[in-house]
Design a protein around this nucleic acid. Structure first.
Lengths: 227, 227
DNA sequence: ATCATGTTGTCACTAGATGGAAATCTTCTC
DNA sequence: GAGAAGATTTCCATCTAGTGACAACATGAT
């Protein structure tokens, strides 16, 4: 959490519930009374808040009545961790791509089932640049990143979409694998006036190499375990 | 979420905040307006709830103003996932221990800094049995599980505490490692009247072997990635 | 410059969150 | 078995605090 996050102007009820969620996760399994004691809340309030956490899947209740972390907490945490890991591995590689191509480079992650998100990116170094697309959601069906994420990359290993998302640029993308699954994409987006066929081939080959390096890193390093 | 969780008798405010947390985690990075649209809440309400999630560390806000999962979500999810993984790997091994020893066998996980939790266990098959301790929190300082978790296991690799937690039983425990770190313990708890020195040695050796198998499984299999 | 959209802050209002008390359940001891 | 102690669940009067319409401000496109 960044140091410049605002002071608590928050919602007390939500803070209480989130504190309970943290308590349950840190202790592994807690009774209602223990949770109330640990949070300094009344038992009734604690029950109601834990009920809410339970019905939403963030905690579950076992046969002995103890509350444990639920599947939603696990799923969201795993999703969040997965994104953090991929981004931190990919970020230096994006800089490397820009050094070698001078064009904008992006890491694409799956967002919804029919969109991708440019989750990270580095601006190119040309005087004439495309806008920065970090944070932008793009459709999968009509973009190079979506095509690469779906694995449709031909023999060279990359997908090209000319005059795609905004008609003035061409995108070239490759899939990034982790343990045999496509989990992300690398893209370079180029103004059309700078596109050449040899340039595309050269960038494509570079992306394939860099994606392989990222994939190897993701696939061979175990995710951090709890210490 | 289990099908027998109660219907929502929850706290609307908390449900809204948790829904926003899920939305942020599922989409990776969302603007305030997108989050409000996706949750069908007013923008002011969404801002305030996301502020609460931010100050508690569950989400963070990046330079472009997008909300992303925060370190607390990642940490809690990773803790919860880690516990689930350890339990699912250990469960069949606990059954194996009981088949070979006929005594109660338990998996111990760290709870607070001075306690362990018996997170899983299998009852022994003797006609005269000890009570089931699954879900029970035990002190680290005076128990075999705590001693094993601290790594104080002598040359044979196991810790024994006679007449420990309830004076009528003797516990023998070994540490379970994952990627070089002790993350859990395996214990067998025996009524004192059945304790013999050769029996303890035999059980100790069995636990060391089984813990090694679990440790190998935990240490070498990467945790599941997001698909 | 205007316009559209996104973000942040304000505050009157009342919905809904609270917690004390009672009821019920569970476990343990004798 | 009865009784005690503790845990859990339910109830509901009270009033806190959560809400959202609106205003102000910021940003980007034309």
């Amino acid at each position: 959490m960044s140091a410049d996050a605002p002071e608590s102007t928050g919602t007390r009820t939500v803070e209480r519930a989130l504190g309970l969620l943290a308590y349950v996760c840190e202790h592994g399994a807690v009774s209602l009374t223990e949770a109330a004691r640990g949070s300094d809340l009344s038992v009734s309030t604690t029950l109601r808040l834990l009920r809410t956490l339970e019905t939403t899947g963030f905690v579950s209740r076992d046969d002995s009545g103890d509350y444990r972390p639920g599947s939603i907490t696990i799923r969201l945490g795993a999703q969040a961790l997965s994104r953090e890991t991929i981004v931190s591995v990919a970020e230096p590689k994006l800089h490397e791509i820009v050094e070698l191509t001078s064009e904008n480079a992006y890491l694409g992650l799956p967002s919804t089932s029919d969109t991708m998100l440019y989750a990270a990116g580095v601006q190119g170094t040309h005087p004439v640049q495309l806008a920065n697309w970090v944070g932008r959601v793009i459709p999968r069906s009509t973009t190079a990143a979506g095509t690469a994420f779906a694995g449709r990359v031909g023999v060279h290993g990359y997908a090209v979409v000319r005059s795609g998302a905004d008609h003035d640029s061409t995108a070239i993308a490759v899939p990034v694998h982790s343990v045999g699954t496509i989990v992300a994409t690398l893209s370079v987006v180029i103004p059309n006036y700078r596109v050449t066929d040899p340039g595309l081939e050269s960038i494509g080959a570079l992306l394939v190499r860099v994606a392989g390096e990222i994939s190897e890193r993701l696939g061979s390093d175990p995710l951090p375990n709890q210490t």
